[in-house]
């Protein structure tokens, strides 16, 4: 039931997003007592057209890495790129525009604006950009709506949808602007296994059938198995990569952390 391995030959593809020597220290860097180093010199690229999962125990820096790579947060040192754009050189406004135009997001929960309908939520980033829909864009959005299977729910409010449906809307929203890369932070963390499977399936299809790029943080080996590749973080460092993951292989790798290096963890969302 693992993801297909046929796309491994695309590892030569340029990186849609990458970080180099990424360091993130929370709290005052002056006082060693309160400072927490979340990322400790991570360099990793996320190739275009690939589905990459980031795994690691709680506190390993998974979420921090995606936030910094996606331009939601800034690095203490090192650099993050979306395509060829270095994020550290952008001011808040340019960073916002970059997120709007070139990056998509799926969060664990609260992905939708409650006052907007499903359709309006999907087109929100484009609407914020004041972008007119060309024929191409309309077709793309239309196809997307069919892929996520929400055509009969377009004019409903988020509150009228189930959790799984809400996450599917979030996935549609993330891809609607045809961004360079979509970051998903524990997208199935709040869902039952069936709904979660649907959302992961959607992400996988978007990569394989629509040639998109997805970076997903998860602590669930089954979810990670949908990816083309898994990168493992521990204590803010990149410790391993795994091509063509399966749930069993990922689980074994994680168990190795527990016994070898990493402190025991409950495996909760980080």
């Amino acid at each position: 039931m693992n993801a297909t391995t046929t796309l491994r030959n695309r590892s030569w593809a340029p990186d849609a997003a990458r970080v180099e020597g990424a360091v993130k220290v929370y709290g005052s860097p002056d006082s060693a007592d309160t400072a927490v180093t979340a990322l400790d010199g991570v360099s990793v690229g996320f190739p275009a057209g690939r589905f990459t999962a980031i795994m690691g125990p709680s506190g390993s820096g998974k979420s921090t890495l995606t936030h910094c790579a996606a331009g939601l947060d800034t690095l203490t040192s090192g650099s993050a790129y979306i395509g060829d754009t270095e994020l550290g050189s952008l001011d808040d406004r340019r960073l916002t525009l970059l997120r709007r135009d070139r990056v998509g997001f799926v969060f664990q929960a609260f992905n939708l604006v409650p006052t907007l309908t499903v359709a309006e939520n999907i087109t929100l980033p484009m609407d914020l950009a004041g972008r007119r829909f060309d024929q191409d864009g309309l077709e793309w959005t239309d196809a997307l709506i069919d892929v996520v299977g929400l055509r009969d729910r377009l004019h409903h409010r988020p509150a009228e949808l189930s959790g799984g449906q809400q996450q599917r809307v979030a996935v549609a929203r993330a891809f609607a602007g045809r961004p360079d890369v979509v970051f998903a932070d524990e997208p199935t963390g709040n869902l039952d296994s069936r709904s979660g499977e649907e959302v992961l399936g959607l992400l996988g299809r978007a990569v394989r059938e629509m040639d998109r790029t997805v970076v997903m943080v998860t602590h669930d080996p089954v979810a990670a198995a949908h990816a083309d590749e898994v990168v493992f973080l521990a204590d803010g460092r990149l410790v391993d990569r795994m091509e063509a993951p399966t749930a069993d292989k990922v689980l074994d790798r994680l168990k190795a952390f527990d016994t070898r290096s990493a402190p025991p963890s409950e495996g909760g969302p980080s």
């Binding site: 406004r93 916002t96 997120r99 997001f105 969060f107 604006v113 409650p114 929100l124 914020l128 950009a129």
Partner: peptide, 16 residues
């Protein structure tokens, strides 16, 4: 707060 954060994350500028 969360909703505003979401809007900012998906590209609403501070001005907007």
């Amino acid at each position: 707060t969360r909703e505003l954060g979401l809007l900012r994350a998906v590209g609403q500028t501070r001005g907007q």
